[in-house]
Simulated assay, not measured.
Amino acid sequence: MIAVALDGPAGAGKSSIAKELAKRFSLIHVDTGALYRAVGLYMLRQGLDPADGAQVIPRLPEVQITLKFSPEGQRIFLGEEDVSEAIRTPEASRASSAVSAIPEVRAFLLEQQRKLARENPVIMDGRDIGTVVLPDASIKIFLTAAPEARAMRRYKELMAKGIDTDYDTVLAEVKERDYRDSHRETAPLRQAEDAVLADTTELDFQGSVELLASIIGEKLNQVR
């Protein structure tokens, strides 16, 4: 079963690019960040501190997350509610980063992610796919870009959705997220030793897609 592990920092464009690559290579796109966002959103809705393991861990059995796939992409549900848009707010993003630093949350979601890869040809994106979730993935890519470039992309995305913010705030949040993700004790963000580095600082979206498509195409030829 083909598995593409796509890792990288916040705002690198992993999910958007992976969605296009999934169509091109007939793969199922699994956005693992959405799982953590869903957990974070659930805790916020319960009035809990997403960074406080003592509050979060006992409530994990209550969290019912389902991923549904269609030609339009992945949809994520909390119970019966489609929260695919609700998890994309800045508040949900911060909550996601907080709960992802809790080892028990990562363990809670780990088997769900691995099961998807066992049963389907996937391109799975996140922070620790190539290092922890799918260490034996046939193709590993570490996607990155300068913090300033990632912040500008995120800023434009939020403005397009009508979410009022400013570039400096977004840049500060990107840098803070980078620090938290790379310094957490459990599964910190890092490039797997056998992953191909793809820096898209100077590329637009389509250029980024083509860069990763060429990497995947070359790797698939080697596997075959």
Rank of each mutant, 00 (worst) to 15 (best):
P61L: 12
I141M: 02
E81Q: 13
Q112N: 00
G126E: 11
E85W: 09
Q74A: 12
L78V: 07
E62M: 01
L143V: 07
S70T: 15
T89C: 09
T66H: 05
R127Q: 07
E62C: 03
G130M: 13
G162Q: 10
L134R: 07
R118K: 11
V174K: 09
I123H: 14
M159D: 02
P103D: 11
D125C: 08
L116W: 15
V122L: 11
P90S: 06
T165Q: 08
K161N: 13
M159Y: 08
K156R: 15
R88K: 15
D166S: 03
V132R: 11
R75A: 12
R153Q: 02
S93I: 00
M159K: 13
K68L: 04
G162I: 14
R59H: 13
I141Q: 01
Y167L: 15
I57M: 02
P147W: 02
Y167R: 15
V56Q: 08
M152H: 07
S138K: 15
P135L: 08
D52S: 12
P61R: 05
A149N: 06
I87N: 06
R150K: 10
F142N: 04
A149Q: 14
S70F: 12
P135I: 10
Q113F: 07
Y167D: 05
A145F: 02
S100Y: 06
Y155A: 15
L143W: 08
S96D: 02
T144K: 12
L134A: 13
I65E: 04
L143C: 09
P90K: 04
A117L: 15
E80T: 13
L60Q: 05
I129W: 01
E119K: 11
P71I: 01
V63E: 00
L116E: 13
M152Y: 07
V83G: 00
I123Y: 14
I139G: 13
I129T: 04
R88F: 11
R106K: 01
P90G: 07
G79M: 09
D136H: 09
L110N: 03
Q64I: 09
I65K: 05
V99G: 00
V133A: 12
L78T: 02
K156V: 10
I139H: 11
G130H: 03
A151T: 12
V99P: 04
D82V: 09
K156Y: 06
L134K: 12
Y167K: 14
D136V: 03
V122Q: 05
S70G: 14
R153T: 01
I163G: 00
R153C: 03
F69Q: 14
A101I: 07
G130L: 12
Q74G: 10
A98T: 01
F108L: 00
E85I: 09
S96T: 00
M159C: 10
A101L: 08
P58C: 13
D168C: 03
S97T: 14
L171M: 00
Q74R: 02
F69E: 11
M152F: 00
T144W: 10
A107N: 00
A137W: 04
A160N: 06
A54V: 02
I102N: 14
L60C: 10
P147H: 03
I123C: 15
Y167I: 05
R106I: 07
R94H: 05
R118V: 00
D125W: 03
T89P: 08
Q55S: 12
S96Q: 06
D82C: 01
S97N: 09
L60W: 09
I57P: 03
D168N: 08
L171D: 04
M124D: 02
